[in-house]
Design a binder for these strands. Structure first.
Lengths: 341, 341
DNA sequence: ATACTATCCTTTACCGTTAAAGTCAAGGCA
DNA sequence: TGCCTTGACTTTAACGGTAAAGGATAGTAT
């Protein structure tokens, strides 16, 4: 029932606990003979160091907290898939938290992570400035922080791994314009920085071609499929009719397509749709979704590397870095570019 | 830079550390006056207990390890989404590990979790009996274990939350038979229990209608989209031609559809496809996928509840439970039942 | 022979918290 | 008055490990 401890090893060998510890930590002042004996006993008993006890003395848990807004959204899972191998090979564990887009839950998760003394946190913040104080406190306490995806909490000095959201909006919108669409509506995201920036990119791209978007062309909602669905229902009532939609993310775009189909219209013939995110399976949808994507694995990988390299060089506080993962247009069929024969 | 400790609180108040500890643990032998003073100081300094130190003394980390084979497979993520809220409200953290279907990685992840003294483990085991010894050892050490999805390691006595895989196979196959298909091939999974059981269900359903499946009707591979794709390529060469495929899971079914389309054939007109799993977005595929599904959130929820209830009643070793999540057929379009007008 | 120096261990203290046992003054009871 | 409770703390030891400082023994320089 009880885990083997160094005490036991030391006892059976007639050496001190410290000697065992030194062998396991590769200290130089241990004779080859003792080292061998200890290692043999370790092997025999299948001993493994107790990470909790080590964390307490070393003041390092080798654990990263991950706080994301939605586990069911494949975007964040892909980011985690990018973080995992980097953390894993370096011996870091991942403590997974979901905020469910709720700032209060986010706060309590962050507090939980603080209490558990995680070495670092990867955060995709729920849209609310309420937790800025906690984040500031965490960094002050020596917890490294990397924000991914969301560019909120401007006063918090930490690494950020983002994409260029204005460019995202421009890419999507220009493409639709290039295909001859003119009445290009926008399904906006929630009230967070990068949703606003995608909107700005959309607006700028239209303006660049001399099109002024009327107010009815934009409906702001959330990032969920249901939000896109509701928003599209509204956009379908706009007159004169719109002929394209740029949705702030793929789930919203998918929701929009559902609404379009329900109205008996066709994608892309009646309304072209472009999303953002390139979520998994988007190429296998009834109408494969044209989208603006970037590598989430890269995003996760960068986040983990920033975090871990900052942890290894203890002491020196690295300058906050902004890594921009370049977005690119992924043309499929929902935009009407028709890449079938 | 330094976290506030009980020592500091005790010092500033002129009481012993134990007194502070007792207040925070709601011990009775503390006067109302002292309790109030301590609580006020805790509030003032924003003090929070150090979970690492508590874990060491309490021999409880309030952490569950989760080991899944593939982070990119939405199935497991959905299970996690079912586990998360249950664990979260009870104050348990989730340490996430991905084995990448590799038994060696799985082993090292399990060892990592053992070293970190997790209270329990939710495991979807990679297909290999190699780690049975470790699992037995873990349970012997007092770590609760719940296996989800995979029904391997029969000698390990632990709770299991599974679905009825034979029924899954029967449900899918009978449905195709009901629709008039007769040459129903099977894309099998890897060499693990529930893949074999789905195969058995398929075989039994055919036999029940007097059909004996020839050997070429089954191709066994893995659970990934690529496996389904390759398997289908092979099945397309079978003569006389097959008119339906039951794939052991949805990614494989999607891979199969890709292969079918690439061969210039249509789903379901030329070949009907039924998968297993009801992954997210399956209803939005180019041809919405008919599949046999069950609630993964329920599965995760059950797993977490079994684990946590076992942890609360410390000492008494609960009888291993088998929870069967009932599968149900989800009819869409890939089977040819035609639920459009 | 004496002091010096490696080499190889051990002792002691500490990480932050909790449980068990101990202290001590005030109050109750015979 | 003396003894026993009771209430409200404090002291001590422990959880499992690591770091720093402290021996002991043997070999080397002088």
């Amino acid at each position: 029932m009880h885990q083997t401890t160094m005490k036991r090893i030391a006892g059976e060998l007639g050496v001190s606990i410290t000697t065992v510890s030194k062998v396991l930590n590769h200290h130089a002042d241990i004779s080859e003979a003792t080292r061998t004996r200890v290692l043999a006993k370790v092997e025999e008993l299948g001993y493994q160091r107790n990470a909790v006890a080590r964390s307490l003395t070393l003041r390092r848990t080798h654990t990263l907290g991950i706080v994301i807004p939605d586990l069911m959204h494949s975007f964040f899972v892909e980011v985690i898939a990018g973080i995992e191998p980097v953390a894993s090979v370096r011996g870091y564990g991942l403590l997974l938290c979901s905020s469910g887009e709720d700032p209060h839950k986010e706060r309590s998760e962050l507090e939980m992570l603080r209490g558990r003394q995680v070495d670092g946190v990867v955060l995709a913040s729920a849209p609310a400035p309420g937790n800025t104080d906690l984040l500031l406190q965490l960094t002050r306490l020596g917890t490294s922080l990397v924000m991914i995806d969301r560019d909120d909490h401007p006063s918090v000095k930490c690494h950020r791994v983002l994409t260029d959201d204005e460019r995202v909006g421009q890419l999507a919108t220009s493409h639709l314009l290039d295909l001859g669409r003119r009445a290009i509506a926008h399904i906006g995201g929630p009230n967070i920085q990068h949703a606003k920036r995608r909107e700005k990119g959309w607006r700028d791209a239209l303006k660049a071609r001399g099109i002024k978007a009327p107010d009815e062309w934009i409906v702001r909602g959330g990032f969920m499929e249901a939000n896109g669905y509701r928003s599209m229902k509204r956009l379908l009532t706009v007159r004169p009719k719109i002929d394209a939609v740029f949705a702030a993310n793929d789930p919203a775009a998918i929701g929009a397509m559902k609404a379009i189909w329900e109205a008996g219209l066709r994608v892309p013939q009646d309304i072209a749709v472009v999303g953002v995110g390139d979520i998994a399976l988007a190429d296998l949808l009834r109408v494969p979704l044209t989208t603006v994507g970037w590598s989430r694995k890269d995003q996760g990988r960068h986040a983990a590397e920033l975090l871990l390299s900052g942890l290894d060089e203890a002491g020196e506080v690295a300058e906050p870095t902004r890594v921009i993962i370049p977005p690119k247009l992924i043309v499929r069929e929902s935009c009407g570019a028709g890449h079938r024969a």
